[in-house]
Design a protein around this nucleic acid. Sequence first.
DNA 1: TCGTTTTATGAACACATGTTCATGTAATAT
DNA 2: ATATTACATGAACATGTGTTCATAAAACGA
Lengths: 195, 195
Amino acid sequence: MSRSTKKEKFFEESLKLIHEKGYKATTMRDIAEKLNFKVANVYNYIDSKQALLETYLFDISNEFLESIELIMESSYAPEEKLRLIISVHVQMISKKPYELSLLVNEWRNLDEPKRGELIYLKMKYNKKVREIIIAGMEQGKFRTMDPDIATLSFLSTLRWLYDKFTDKSDEHSKANRIEIEKQLTDFIFLGLGNR
Amino acid sequence: MSRSTKKEKFFEESLKLIHEKGYKATTMRDIAEKLNFKVANVYNYIDSKQALLETYLFDISNEFLESIELIMESSYAPEEKLRLIISVHVQMISKKPYELSLLVNEWRNLDEPKRGELIYLKMKYNKKVREIIIAGMEQGKFRTMDPDIATLSFLSTLRWLYDKFTDKSDEHSKANRIEIEKQLTDFIFLGLGNR
DNA sequence: TCGTTTTATGAACACATGTTCATGTAATAT
DNA sequence: ATATTACATGAACATGTGTTCATAAAACGA
């Protein structure tokens, strides 16, 4: 097993464990056992359990924020911006479904002050989406509706996607990813209704 | 403080604690402290921590399933059925937001076999929604799209509502509840797009 | 008032868990 | 071949946690 692969394997397996059992329910001994070594050795890979969680959450959060900031600063129209956001989400989820799962489910297990920092990042992200939606309404491109509910609904639709990619019961190809993006975009802009 | 109120208070405060800290992170001592008594006394209200979680999760699940079964067995058209489901969700969430939060976030902390049982109930529910959506598509009332994505998106939009009702930063009246239901229904059937 | 139920407590136990440390072996680089 | 880095272990510690038990006030119904 090559050099960096060992550390990668560690982060990969730990991530999956935390995803499936939850952060609090996953013990350092669980992680060690999954990797076929003893507890003490875990600390050659990471400083603490808390640091492990932080790594996953902030890495993925920052990656997300960078994307949305680029989109925000572009001159695309609101509708195009939302399309891009959907696209980024689907790409991200197809590449890092377990990280996304943690971001949804485990952020509150962060200790302060990291917890506050992450909440701040999340709020920042939500506000940007909200701005885009409001802009779209003002330009008459989106239906006029409560901006909070619109934002919440939009984001909710994207949040649960990781389910489809962490679920081992079926396989997903790249072609599938593109199709999912289309399906989602249609749902968000057109809804379930027929015309 | 009257007789049953004491027990009610116990379940109410425990519920809020678990909602805000998470099941694993909430200790029996936390609960005792919040209610101004000592740990041992907790066991005069509930048999075990696990039993506490089970109570919340299965009560709310069954309540949900009863509703959807009535809806399923009715002769309403698919679109009306979905409208009813949305309505039930919003009502439920406005009445029991914390229970709903647990159902979304804490089900995996159940020990087997209860965990499996709850997953089964959830799948049962999802399948029924899926059936309605497929029926609607076949009757040409809904846009034709991937039924899995449609189902997932529909449910996702409803799942996160508890956020709005557990968030202490703003107040919610009954009037608000009706309006939220309308907003959500429109989002789901019409999407964000203008016509 | 007396018996019963409800509500409460301190003390203790058994076990799990995050972490440290001193030490050892295997792999790699120079 | 040797120095350095990566990977691994056993043992131990401090603390946290769910739970039990014997017991006692307090509240309540008769």
